[in-house]
Design a protein around this nucleic acid. Structure first.
Lengths: 153, 153
DNA sequence: ATGGGTGCAAATCCTTTGCACTCGG
DNA sequence: CCGAGTGCAAAGGATTTGCACCCAT
């Protein structure tokens, strides 16, 4: 989903100021890496990108990613790869993910009716929904073409 | 979701025979623990239950759980607790999970229209869906009552 | 008998933590 | 200045793996 990285970065600065937290080089570098990434990055990928500008210890990477998530500016994902991925959060733009079982590519889609239906179904079993996670696994466009007979896993 | 543990166990025996795999005590004990559990068990919980009957090494627990999943008789879940959970698989009974952010209780629901909508939306972005994972996070019935003002996380 | 299964413990892998040092405000 | 932030390396916790021995078939 497209997001305005510049705006998110601004919000992050404000968040830091509002909470009397220092805006260190490391924090800004990590935030930028996440906000301007066109994809869902792993902690290690963030680390590699950040390293081009400043040296940042692994611990700080994780601490800052956590900070971003808690500030509501990034979202944490677990696509079952054994590690987590992070994506910049576009406020109010709920969307779901399709993960290709063959190549790992992530495709997104959004649909309000789906969001409403999910909340409604949860409420029907007396659950008060707050948020949810939906991941569809199968074959992305190019992997379907590359192997037309392949059965998605 | 209710499943017929006895039937699953039978299927598991058949699966083992069909693949020329020995039906060891350990395998059967692990399978039973999963098939007759009323809940989603972690590897460690399975281990504890199994231990009452036979001593089973951790490695075997994991190896057998993996076997069950690959045989299509159990499903693996990751509710973000830092470890996985397993549930017996009722063939053709797709259902989704609501996980209480407060107490961890899992509530389930099923809805065909939802299943169809998810598949359809994925196809609209040229994705060939195979299966999906939907988890709703919020407050379960009793946690809502215990703390009416609580905001679910 | 015999090939796969099992147990044990060591090894992995991602992530977290303790602690002395450094820096943004 | 000074409390919070950082880096390093060691710790952690779930899961996997190597290997000698054991057991269903």
């Amino acid at each position: 989903m497209k997001v305005d990285g510049t705006k998110l970065l601004e919000e992050f600065r404000r968040h830091l100021a509002d909470h009397n937290l220092p805006a260190t080089q490391q924090r800004l570098a990590v935030a930028e890496a996440v906000f301007f990434a066109g994809e869902h990055l792993s902690a290690e990928e963030v680390s590699r990108r950040v390293a081009k500008r400043v040296a940042v210890g692994t611990a700080t990477i994780y601490r800052t990613l956590d900070l971003l998530v808690r500030a509501g500016l990034a979202k944490e994902h677990d696509f079952g790869e054994g590690f987590k991925r992070y994506e910049p959060l576009a406020p109010g733009q709920a969307h779901e993910h399709c993960i290709c079982s063959s190549c790992g590519r992530v495709t997104e889609f959004a649909n309000d009716r789906l969001e409403r239906m999910i909340a409604l179904l949860a409420e029907e079993v007396e659950f008060r929904p707050h948020h949810h996670r939906l991941e569809v696994y199968g074959l992305c466009r190019s992997c379907q073409q590359a192997n037309p007979l392949a059965r998605a896993r």
